[in-house]
């Protein structure tokens, strides 16, 4: 059938151009379309990555949405497919379906303070939005990145964070749960950084990404600080087999996380957070 060309379940081949080890179990891949052409996406969207014969896994895009030549994914190897992705070498080809999902509403935050609250590898799906914000820096009030990691060894994109920290037009604060080695920075959970403020709560949009529990508490901390629920956004994670709303796996209340999310406005889902095993 002619509809075959539009089959949303067929992947497009991408070649691995570069692999960078980020943490012991986390790596960043740069991919280019094997058959030419570019790739456009919006910050916060994800792709389904297919490893030949192994399977598919949804991974958020961690690169710059302003860059269309290459596709960047940062992945933690925790399962069969992500483990197989970890074993790929430069030149290997994987399948890509996407981009899918609702992005971070970066442009809707123009004119406001923009606060990124990240936990662990949750910084990866936020990075495209940080790039986009910094490419439009003059359109925002403050741009703050508040980042919490387990230990100093678990801090993702360390060098890049150092560069951000060195900028005068960006406020960056990092905290760890457990200080190790020569860590001389903050110790405590990321919600502490939110509590310290430094942004204008009435005029702030916050993008939160990390483990679900961390997002719940971060959203509460933002709310306590005076940021409205309608100005807080979180990125959800659920089991996904198709990424396009056909397989039913990612349902969360009335939502399909793949197509109604992964980015949700906090006021639309705050009630769901408190329902167990939803």
């Amino acid at each position: 059938m002619s509809a075959h060309a539009k089959d949303p379940m067929l992947p497009r081949p991408f070649r691995v151009e570069k692999v960078k080890r980020e943490l012991s179990d986390t790596f960043t891949m740069e991919l280019v379309p094997a058959e030419g052409g570019g790739f456009s996406f919006a910050a916060g969207q994800f792709n389904m990555l297919y490893v030949f014969g192994i399977g598919e896994v949804p991974i958020s895009i961690s690169g710059d949405p302003g860059e269309h030549e290459r596709l960047v994914h940062t992945t933690r190897a925790v399962g069969k497919v992500s483990g197989a992705l970890d074993a790929l070498k430069v030149g290997d080809v994987i399948g890509v379906r996407g981009p899918y999902g609702i992005p971070w509403p970066v442009e809707a935050a123009f004119g406001r303070d923009l606060v990124f609250v990240a936990g662990g590898v949750g910084l990866a799906p936020l990075r495209p939005a940080i790039y986009q914000a910094m490419a439009n820096r003059e359109r925002f009030g403050k741009v703050m990145v508040l980042y919490g990691a387990r230990t100093p060894e678990d801090i993702l994109f360390k060098k890049e964070i150092e560069r951000w920290r060195g900028r005068f037009d960006m406020d960056v604060a990092v905290t760890v749960d457990r200080a190790t080695g020569k860590w001389g920075g903050n110790v405590g959970v990321v919600t502490n950084l939110v509590a310290k403020g430094g942004f204008d709560p009435q005029n702030t949009t916050a993008f939160v990404c990390g483990p679900e529990v961390m997002m719940r508490y971060a959203a509460q901390a933002l709310e306590k600080k005076g940021v409205g629920r309608g100005s807080i956004f979180v990125s959800m994670e659920r089991n996904m087999k198709c990424g396009v709303g056909l397989c039913g796996h990612c349902q969360w209340g009335t939502h399909f996380v793949c197509k109604d999310g992964p980015v949700f406005r906090y006021d639309s889902i705050a009630d769901l957070f408190s329902i167990r095993e939803l």
Binding site: D25, T26, F46, G55, E56, V57, P58, I59, S60, S62, T74, T75, R76, A77, V78, G79, K80, V81, S82, G119, G120, V121, G122, A124, P125, G148, A149, R150, D154, D177, V189, V190, C209, G210, P211, E212, V213, M214, M215, Y217, E237, R238, N239, M240, K241, P262
Partner: peptide
């Protein structure tokens, strides 16, 4: 909050699934 083994495995990392 950010560890791999925490909260019964209900963990965010940026592979949403497998």
């Amino acid at each position: 909050l950010y560890g791999v083994d925490a909260e019964g495995g209900k963990k965010k990392k940026k592979g949403k699934g497998d």
